[in-house]
Design a binder for these strands. Sequence first.
DNA 1: GTTAGCACTCTAACTCCCCGAGTGCTAATT
DNA 2: AATTAGCACTCGGGGAGTTAGAGTGCTAAC
Lengths: 350, 350
Amino acid sequence: MLTEVNIMLTERQLLLLQVIIDDFIDTAHPVGSRVLAKKGTIPFSAATIRNEMADLEELGFLEKMHSSSGRIPSEKGYRYYVDHLIKPVSHNMHHGIVSKLVQEGIYEFEQIVQMSAEILSELTSYTAIILGPEIFETQLKQLQIVPLSTETAVAILITNTGHVEHRMISLPEAINASDLEKLVNIINQKLVGIPIVKLQNIFYTEMADIMKRYLDDYEKSLSYLKAIFLTDYPVKVYVSGTSNMLMQPEFNDIDKVRSFYTLMDREEELIKLLKDSTPGIEVTIGNENEVEAIKDFSLITSSLRHEEEQVGTIALLGPKRMEYRKVISLLKGLSNEMTNTLYMWYKDKE
Amino acid sequence: MLTEVNIMLTERQLLLLQVIIDDFIDTAHPVGSRVLAKKGTIPFSAATIRNEMADLEELGFLEKMHSSSGRIPSEKGYRYYVDHLIKPVSHNMHHGIVSKLVQEGIYEFEQIVQMSAEILSELTSYTAIILGPEIFETQLKQLQIVPLSTETAVAILITNTGHVEHRMISLPEAINASDLEKLVNIINQKLVGIPIVKLQNIFYTEMADIMKRYLDDYEKSLSYLKAIFLTDYPVKVYVSGTSNMLMQPEFNDIDKVRSFYTLMDREEELIKLLKDSTPGIEVTIGNENEVEAIKDFSLITSSLRHEEEQVGTIALLGPKRMEYRKVISLLKGLSNEMTNTLYMWYKDKE
DNA sequence: GTTAGCACTCTAACTCCCCGAGTGCTAATT
DNA sequence: AATTAGCACTCGGGGAGTTAGAGTGCTAAC
């Protein structure tokens, strides 16, 4: 596949494509043959460049906005650029974002992800979108139920990754206090280490017997547990740096701004956008994305994993004319750092 | 004060002011004498209306955009409108937002505030800004420390209002497990019911003795506690419905959009905006606000209290041309509902 | 294979002009 | 004395026409 494409492009065309895309990413202006020739990066005349450009357009790598404008990269062009033209930057020159945060005493992983994303969006002027962990895949570490009044209590659920979910529950018919305690004890004895997603099955099978035996009011207890375990713990989405994007020249169009922010307000859409990301860095350009609203954006996602569990996703959303080189290397560096940090923290968790 | 102003305005002027502001709020177009006369709300000719308008302008209640445009309300005009011209709508026609949410099984107060704000912004097409509770004023209900690995643990702090804060702490030098347990027990015996803000003082005075007596390594324990109690639990800010605002005609100006979103991205500014709100509903119009960035917006805040504690703030940010009548009555209704709900939940908390 | 030259194209910005909605003032009316 | 009709004037917005500039494609020459 790769070679197939390479056969079709001469060295000069490759160079040209590279220079054109670099220039357009930089300036957001369609690039014309004259200017390109004057810059001296390409040792040929404007006329020659024009010919090559026409060829590259025919091959689908470049486009014109109108018949007498300069060329801009097509999506196919960007794709080729990302796949073959970006030299893999050594990303051991990472910025130490995470270690800096850890030094500041921040040990909450989700918080680190959030703050990194903020820094990232600041650094790139694009919008960072962060997805919290899929809690259902993590394991129960401990359950606590703390009564607040005779009618309310707060249930706290701690996972092996240090993630904490809490939820208020109502106790309309006052439950026996010792029963509540017993209940919590049973759960912590029997269910620690079980993935959250499997908990509800276990209630109806293995746990039923035990609970019946030890608790005065099995039915009632079960209903409280339902409130805790069977509700959705929705994935959390954080968005940061949307206003940076407004500085991009493509956002002079007010309608684009509107549709952009309408998307940003729709959490479900964002979740859909990031949810099924594969491990590693993934670049999606324009229409490659199935979500209609970002068909003229590019999205770069980095899915953070720890021992096969997805513990978060960081994505950068920007115009198709994105600084892919910079963003990819930044994200790669950050990913590495985070993976290492996670490994250090939880290496002995079991 | 109120009468002083009334003396200066005739009945007709009052009516006129009212109608003009209502109309401008509705249409966003400067209102002219001709149109007003045609509408028939005022039984006078365009010429008479023009004269009155000129007077109202001289008094500072109206403005012109340019010499031959219709009139628009000045900030003084809006202020007068809000203070004297809005008939106190009976807000027992509240929409039951909160009770609806509670029926859906949501008992987390902060979550209710958030969702209400979302509904509110949907209902009004303005932007809702929500401030979480000032945790430092609430009391400690319970502390939990759950070890995750030999080096990390998660500390969970529950307040009497059901608010849960959690924080990862590092345990670089492995602490004696039973010491940790003892520590937690001591805290829960001695410190429950104390306002969070006072905790740090107590550590250095009363707690020191007890801890020295019962714990093997007093110094080390203290350092963990510092990580839990002496760090900031920053007030949380939620913003919802920003994209609604983009539908407002005043947002056709891209620069306004930019400055608006730049503000929305700056959490500290938002906190500053809402933090020192007095109890009840408060309306701030344009330049009345000390934050530069919203000088052509209006802000309506409603501070939610439960037994003197501020447990949250809901604010609606919109153009100066805001539907004050609707928004104020909505917020009043919601406030009442929330106060009642809080009372019911926590009436027996102590 | 490369380049210079030229005719052609299209956009963006600018000017000019006119229309409509509104005002302020004066004189007439009630 | 209050109200109204009439009129001249003002200003912003929108459409038409013009121009300058940057770019292209093609052809012919190097």
